[in-house]
Amino acid sequence: MNEGTQMRILVTGATGIVGRHVVDRLVRAGADVRALTRNPAEANLPPQVEVVEGDLTAPASVAAALEGVERVYLFSVEESAREVVALAAQAGVRRIVVLSAASVTAGLHTNPVERAVEESGLEWTHVRPCGFMTNLLQIWAPSIRAERVVRYPFADEPMNLVHEADIAAVAVAALLEDGHHGRAYTLTGPGLVTIREQVAAIGDALGEPVRYEEVTRELARELMKAQGGFAAESADLMLGFVEYGGDAAKGADGYADQDWSALMRVWPDVEQVTGRPPRSYAEWARDHVADFR
């Protein structure tokens, strides 16, 4: 990946779950990395990274960050996508890699960011992960640390999850290598995993039992709302009290061909792009063991 030393790459969402991994991988590859964040003082990124202030919801604040940039890792912010992409094209950006979602592959909704990039004339790649293995970390970690217990419904319902490091690995390959233009990669782990299996894997990583208590959706919602933050914000969607995709899922914008099975398949894209199998949930649990202590 010597090509990375010849270009400047802007990473948006640089302090996020995936963005930090993207930044670290690009730095290791020798790329000239500029990181966009709303709060540079708290970014805590590698010292060789140029950290700049900007907010994707306010496109004008991103214009300066795009100057001299050849490639962009774009975190999806739907309402400002066309303005941000237009600014990128005006600045001379040649390639954009979009962090999207597997729900687009399944036809459950459309992503205006994908459309904006495709219609821009720039080189594009869409990275569409299934559920993040990390999504439940913020919800479960407090009770695991305090009581070594998880209280959640859906004990034996299989989930298709992917390690955030694998998402970043695919995104970085698409940023640095040729041959990914016009591709949409759907990313999963190596197999489906249930809530009960996830809790057991966390216990194995800790080296001590973590108890699982299955509770009703209503009680889980109450606990998550009381927890605040991400847990409170995501409770209704994660627990099925609201439908994912809204009107788009019903075909209001012409995307009526839904394929729920696409979200339950193990996709080969991580291995095809990176040359290595996707990480398992057990590996993820070991990577995050400090979060549960």
Rank of each mutant, 00 (worst) to 15 (best):
G4R: 15
G4F: 14
G4K: 13
T5G: 04
M7G: 07
M7H: 12
L10D: 10
G13I: 10
A14R: 03
A14E: 01
I17N: 15
G19H: 00
R20W: 14
H21S: 11
H21W: 06
V23Y: 04
D24N: 11
D24T: 02
V27M: 13
R28K: 15
R38A: 11
N44F: 15
L45D: 12
Q48S: 15
Q48W: 07
V51I: 12
L56M: 14
T57P: 00
P59N: 08
A60C: 05
V62L: 06
A63R: 14
A63I: 08
A64R: 05
A64M: 00
A64F: 00
A65T: 05
E67A: 15
G68C: 06
V69L: 11
R71T: 15
R71Y: 13
A86I: 04
A86T: 10
L87R: 14
G92M: 09
I96C: 10
I96H: 06
L99F: 13
L99A: 15
L99P: 11
V104R: 04
T105E: 11
T105H: 08
G107E: 05
H109C: 09
T110K: 09
N111H: 00
P112E: 07
A116P: 13
E119V: 01
G121S: 14
L122W: 08
P129Y: 14
P129N: 14
M133E: 01
L137K: 07
L137F: 07
L137H: 11
I139A: 04
F154R: 09
A155C: 03
V162A: 06
D166N: 05
I167W: 02
A168V: 02
A173G: 06
G182S: 14
G182W: 10
R183F: 03
T186Y: 04
G189C: 12
P190I: 08
L192D: 09
V193N: 09
I195N: 14
E197K: 07
E197A: 14
G207H: 05
E213A: 15
E213I: 15
E214D: 06
E214N: 12
E214T: 11
R217P: 02
M224I: 07
K225C: 09
F230E: 13
A232G: 13
A235M: 05
M238G: 00
L239Y: 00
G240K: 02
G246Q: 08
D247S: 03
A249F: 08
K250L: 06
G251T: 04
G254E: 11
Q258C: 04
Q258A: 10
M264D: 08
M264C: 03
M264F: 14
R265S: 03
V270D: 00
V270Q: 03
E271F: 02
Q272T: 05
Q272S: 03
V273Y: 00
P278F: 06
D291R: 08
F292G: 04
